[in-house]
Simulated assay, not measured.
Amino acid sequence: MEKRNKNLKNMINPLFYRSTPADVWTGRNDGTDLAVQRWHQRIIRIDLQAENVSLPPAGDQGIALIGFSCDEGVRRNGGRTGAKDGPAHFRKASCNLPVHLTEDAVFLDLGDIICTDQNMEEAQLSLAQTVAFALSNGYQPFVIGGGHEVAYGHYTGIKNHVKPAESIGIINFDAHFDLREPNENGTNSGTGFLQIARDCQSDGKPFRYLPVGIQQNSNTKYLFDTASNLKVNYIPAEGFMVSRAEEIRIQLEEFITGSTHIYLTICMDVFSSSFAPGVSAAAFSGLIPDAFFFSCLQTVLASGKVISMDIAECNPVYDQDQRTAKLAAALAFRMINP
């Protein structure tokens, strides 16, 4: 393990990494007993650039929080920047969440991958290396963005870890397909899943992608045609309702059954702006984070196939009353404690 840790330090460009400061994880303290602990008391900060760094054994559950402090893809895509501060925004909202992990579970904060000199590709590469490293040490990565360009780096890290014969299914709660062609600025926050599709084609593997919450008024006809050409089934926002609960559950379960592993990603702009105003592309309508939504999320989590997770597009610049950050924290709490 120590050799792997040393190699990771040598692989990640130090200009694209920042450890989490000690004063970030602070909050209410009701005592040290397991029953009254909060996240700020339980989380262990790891500096991946420290000499002779090593990760503790993952225990019966290992969670590795990784920040992706980058919104260069959003800038290239013409969106509202500010999501690069999403990881800090999320940590602040999560400090006082109660611990419902077992005593043997280990919860790490591996710091942030940052984007320097608008070099999004190097940031994505560093994220991929960190994700693969966490997985190789028995931890389930939980990545907080940042723009949804997080998806390409995150997926690449998972792909680099799993066995060649294993398949990765992607479930993306999102208002957008993110199947755009690169524009004059190159790849961006809207191209990630098309990049993954093309990588799958090059690798001779199926592209397994299920977007949930797609809005017709947020995607051009070209994007719907692209999804059709790639044989991508999707669940539209207008069809995401309790009256279709059984149909949606079956669609989710059938998709999961066909995959060895599930990469779960949630873009905060999938929700109505009344619940998540702090995003790069707000929409007046969208999914509601109610009991039905969480039951669908639970269907994915209960499969036992989720290998890695992320939350994207948490933008503090436009967040009102910390609503988006608090919702992201609530999502993370459920995803870590299914």
Rank of each mutant, 00 (worst) to 15 (best):
K3D: 07
K6P: 00
M11F: 13
S19N: 09
T20C: 15
G27R: 04
D30H: 12
A35C: 06
V36N: 04
R38E: 06
L55I: 13
E72L: 10
R75H: 12
R76E: 02
K84E: 05
A88L: 07
A105E: 00
L108V: 14
I114N: 05
E122K: 14
A123F: 04
A128W: 00
V131M: 05
A132R: 10
F133V: 04
S136Q: 09
Y152V: 13
G157E: 00
G157K: 01
N160C: 10
H161K: 09
V162H: 02
E166D: 15
H176K: 03
F193Q: 06
L194P: 06
L194Q: 12
A197T: 08
Q201K: 15
R208M: 15
Y209I: 14
L210K: 10
G213M: 02
Q216H: 12
Q216M: 07
Y222F: 13
Y234I: 12
A237Y: 00
G239T: 04
F240C: 12
R244G: 06
Q251E: 13
L252H: 06
T257Y: 04
H261W: 15
I262P: 02
I262V: 15
Y263F: 15
T265D: 04
M268N: 07
V270M: 02
F271N: 09
F271V: 13
F271D: 08
S280I: 03
F284N: 12
F284G: 13
C296M: 15
I311E: 00
E313G: 15
E313W: 06
N315E: 02
Q320H: 11
D321Q: 13
T324C: 05
A325H: 01
A332R: 00
R334E: 10
N337M: 05
